[in-house]
Amino acid sequence: MPRPRKFVESDVVSSASEVFAVHGLAASTLDDLVRATGLGKQSLYNAFGGKRELFLRALSEDREEATRAVSEALGHDGASPLERIRGHMLRMAIEFSSSDRRVSLTTRALVESTGEEDPLSTVTKAGIEQLAGIYAGCLEHARENGDLPEDANVQSLAVYFVAVTRGMELLGRAGVGRSVLTAVALDALRALHGPRADRADEVPSTRE
Rank of each mutant, 00 (worst) to 15 (best):
A26L: 04
D77I: 03
I85G: 06
R91G: 14
E53Y: 09
R199I: 02
S99Q: 09
L192E: 12
M92A: 04
L56W: 02
S113I: 12
A158C: 06
T37N: 08
F48D: 00
S15R: 15
R52L: 08
R108N: 01
N145V: 07
Y135Q: 02
S97T: 10
L30K: 04
T106E: 09
R102E: 01
F20E: 02
I94G: 08
M89T: 04
C138Y: 01
V159F: 10
G133F: 05
D187A: 12
S98Q: 05
G115T: 02
A132K: 07
T107W: 07
F55T: 06
G137R: 06
R5D: 10
E117W: 12
A126R: 15
Q130N: 15
E72R: 13
E83A: 12
I94S: 11
L30M: 15
E9A: 11
C138F: 05
G177I: 02
H76K: 07
L54S: 03
R102S: 03
T124W: 00
L189S: 04
F48M: 02
A93T: 00
Y160C: 01
T107F: 00
R102M: 08
E169R: 14
L82W: 02
R5I: 05
L90D: 06
N145F: 09
A27S: 11
A188N: 04
K125V: 10
N145K: 14
L192N: 01
S15Q: 15
T107A: 11
A27Y: 07
L120K: 06
S205N: 08
L74I: 11
N46A: 12
V111M: 11
E65L: 08
E83P: 01
T106D: 00
E117V: 11
E9R: 15
S121Y: 03
G177T: 08
G194P: 00
T124I: 08
V103P: 00
L74N: 00
E65M: 07
G194I: 04
V123E: 14
S121N: 06
M1D: 03
R190C: 09
D201V: 13
R199D: 04
E116T: 09
N145R: 15
G146N: 07
A185N: 02
E72N: 02
R84S: 03
T67K: 14
R190I: 06
R199A: 07
S179I: 03
S179E: 04
G177S: 11
V164M: 13
E18H: 08
G137S: 07
A163C: 11
A79Q: 08
G78I: 12
E208R: 11
T37A: 15
D11R: 15
A185H: 05
R63Q: 11
V103D: 01
T106W: 05
A200W: 05
G78C: 04
A174D: 13
G194E: 01
R190K: 13
R108F: 04
L181I: 03
S156L: 10
T107G: 02
A66E: 10
S179R: 08
F7H: 15
E117M: 14
A73L: 09
V203G: 05
P4S: 13
K51Y: 10
T29I: 14
N46W: 02
T124D: 02
V123P: 00
A27C: 08
A73H: 10
L171C: 05
